[in-house]
Computed example of a mutant assay.
Amino acid sequence: MSLLNFSINGKSTSATRYEGTARQFSIVVDEPPILGGEDSAANPVEYILAGYAGCLNVVFNIVAKELDISINQLNININGDINPEKFLGISNKERAGFQSLNAHIELNTDASFEKEQLLILKVKERCPVNDNLLNPTPVNYIFTNS
Rank of each mutant, 00 (worst) to 15 (best):
L3G: 10
N5G: 12
F6I: 15
K11E: 12
T13A: 02
S14T: 15
A15L: 14
E19D: 04
T21P: 01
R23M: 15
Q24V: 07
S26H: 15
I27R: 08
I27N: 08
I27A: 13
I27S: 09
E31F: 04
E31Q: 09
P33L: 07
E38P: 02
N43Y: 07
A50C: 04
G54Q: 05
G54S: 11
V58L: 05
V63A: 07
A64L: 09
D68Y: 12
S70L: 15
L74Y: 02
N77R: 01
G80D: 10
G80S: 13
D81V: 13
D81L: 13
N83I: 13
E85I: 08
G89R: 09
I90M: 01
N92F: 00
G97D: 04
G97C: 06
F98A: 07
S100I: 09
S100Y: 14
L101W: 00
N102C: 05
H104G: 08
N108K: 14
T109N: 03
A111I: 01
F113E: 13
E114M: 15
K115L: 13
K115C: 09
E116K: 12
L118H: 10
L118P: 02
I120M: 11
K122L: 11
E125L: 05
P128A: 13
N132E: 10
N135D: 06
N135I: 04
P136H: 09
V139R: 06
F143Q: 01
F143R: 02
S146I: 03
